[in-house]
């Protein structure tokens, strides 16, 4: 499987379908510890991404970077709340390091690192704050480890698995960033919706590579 622009587009269409299916689940998580709009926001944002990919007026994409840049600007404009600028910045920074026809293992590592760096530079959260960083940080570590001898899809799969574990690990955490932090200890017991959607996003990247 080649991780090229066509893969990146399949990744985004798959994400749109997954976000739509998980709309209620994400919204319910966010209702417990946030403002209750994460599912709606992610569904709206990725639906807009899918429709831009289908738009004949948008020039065809030849590199992974071109797809990711389109995703970045669309998410920033259409996803409300903190997730729009956070995911938008993640894809924007990822686009800077993926300006090539297809990605090898090191290319996937660079993508995941740049996306995670975008999230942390924008949101200034650190692991343990009960945010999407708790999914992205382990994904980066796992991708870097897997890159030692692994091919692109193996790197991606390792990153996605680590993100899922990282998201699950946010359940007992007490939020210290964003509106969930106002809940203090009452934020414990619920998975962070942003970490959950991050895990979903990376799982969709693996599925789009036909390796799930």
């Amino acid at each position: 499987m080649t991780l090229d622009a066509a893969w990146a587009e399949r990744w985004m269409r798959r994400s749109a379908a997954d976000m739509h299916a998980a709309r209620e689940e994400l919204t319910e998580l966010d209702r417990r510890i946030g403002d209750g709009d994460h599912g709606v926001n992610m569904d709206r944002g990725f639906a807009a991404v899918a429709s831009r990919l289908d738009d004949e007026a948008v020039p065809p994409r030849e590199t992974v970077a071109q797809v990711l840049r389109l995703v970045a600007t669309t998410l920033m404009s259409t996803v409300g709340g903190a997730s729009g600028p956070l995911y938008g910045t993640a894809f924007l920074h990822a686009a800077r390091v993926t300006n090539r026809a297809d990605l090898d293992g090191a290319g996937v590592v660079a993508l995941v690192e740049a996306a995670a760096e975008g999230i942390t530079s924008r949101g200034r959260a650190v692991p343990g704050d009960k945010t999407m960083v708790d999914a992205w940080a382990p994904a980066v570590e796992a991708a870097e480890r897997a890159a030692d001898g692994g091919d692109a899809v193996e790197v991606l799969r390792a990153a996605a698995a680590a993100a899922a574990d990282g998201a699950a690990a946010t359940v007992p955490m007490i939020a210290t960033k964003g509106r969930a932090s106002y809940l203090g200890p009452r934020s414990a017991g619920t998975e962070d919706p942003g970490a959950r959607s991050t895990a979903m996003l990376l799982a969709a990247a693996v599925a789009a590579a036909g390796a799930d």
Binding site: T73, M76, G80, G81, A82, G84, P85, L86, G88, T89, L92, R122, G123, K177, G178, R179
Partner: peptide
Amino acid sequence: DLGSAALVVEAAFEL
């Protein structure tokens, strides 16, 4: 007014 509003402003500056 809230953290996410600040994030949107910073994203606009980055773009």
